[in-house]
Write a protein that binds this DNA or RNA. Structure first.
Lengths: 180, 180
DNA sequence: GTTCACATGTAACAGGTTACATGATTGG
DNA sequence: CCAATCATGTAACCTGTTACATGTGAAC
């Protein structure tokens, strides 16, 4: 899914500026299943304007630059809803963490343990974040999406806690070692 | 993590051709947390050669094109292991499925139910695939990675089964509808 | 006969990231 | 005083995808 569709999807629920869309996509209630950055959001918004899917309203502010508040149009609403009927692609999961884990037996034991500690910590923070989001949300579909994120997060935390010793035990010591 | 590192990581465990690396990354025991395609693998292998991280051996075959079997060098081994000490970036999860779910109340009820059915099916197939992989694997670290994938998969399946009715019930019927 | 598995590779293109440029206000 | 938040935008760059090009043998 491209950033244009993402912007349209967010604007479907509420008016927003590019800055706010970035926040929603990187910290807010879309953040656990979507990626976006300024460099892609602003051009996407411009394109959406050109195509008549959104409108802008400029709000002057004292001291700060004017904010450009985008709102979806009927045409944009219809385009989004129509697009929903294309079978969604498979979820994408990429994990450098798991990649590193593959070579755990070659890592310094302390480093491995610290990495696992940090990972659990980060996942717990994320879980907490999602939990707070879900408490401040009364839209059932959004709750579902947040709940899904929480479920995966919890599963990851529990899995690491229950299985980390299998990595830390390092059953057979390998001879190949990196010099450090 | 780029494709070069991925190729190096696979070659760390075993010699392989570009074709085989593609299989491992798209169906094999790396497939649930890594993405790669021919268009990126072959050039990555060439680059790895240029940098002295791998060597090639050409195996002529009757009827089929010669296969180029790549093998990691000491330099490559060291480079991979050294790279492991860079803190792994956060896991990336992208889901068009969850995005579509956000607008479930605007979808035709039948379509929504079918989409959820299909999604559970796909996830169950994936789980089965991972399960079979883990049975044919005796490397503890790989087992950990596969187990992690299975845990997340199971969590997703259970969450959908337990919560789909909340989407399908459509608490408040919205008036905005796409024409179909 | 047609599709699948094997096998390598390139080129055009899409898509997005990173860093940069700019600048005021608020809170610690 | 410094960092963070608010706020917009561009340009160079990187990375990877898709589609194409080519060809055999086996299975169905």
């Amino acid at each position: 899914m491209n950033i244009r569709t993402l912007c349209l999807g967010i604007l479907f629920f509420e008016e927003a500026t590019g800055y706010e869309i970035n926040k929603l996509a990187s910290e807010g209630r879309f953040s656990h299943f979507i990626e976006a950055s300024y460099g892609s959001i602003y051009p996407a918004l411009t394109k959406l304007m050109d195509d008549g899917y959104v409108t802008v309203r400029e709000e002057r502010q004292v001291g700060k630059p004017a904010r450009k508040v985008y709102a979806i149009t009927e045409k944009g609403r219809k385009a989004l809803l129509d697009g929903l009927y294309d079978e969604p692609g498979a979820d994408i999961f990429k994990s450098e963490f798991l990649f590193v884990c593959l070579y755990s037996e070659f890592l310094e034991p302390n480093y491995l343990s610290e990495m696992l500690d940090r990972r659990v910590e980060v996942l717990e923070e994320k879980f907490q974040m999602l939990h707070e989001l879900s408490e401040r949300c009364d839209h059932p579909a959004s709750q579902f999406a947040i709940g899904y994120g929480k479920a995966l997060n919890r599963a990851a935390i529990e899995f690491i806690k229950e299985n980390r010793e299998k990595l830390e035990a390092r059953h057979e010591r390998k001879t190949v070692q990196a010099a450090h």
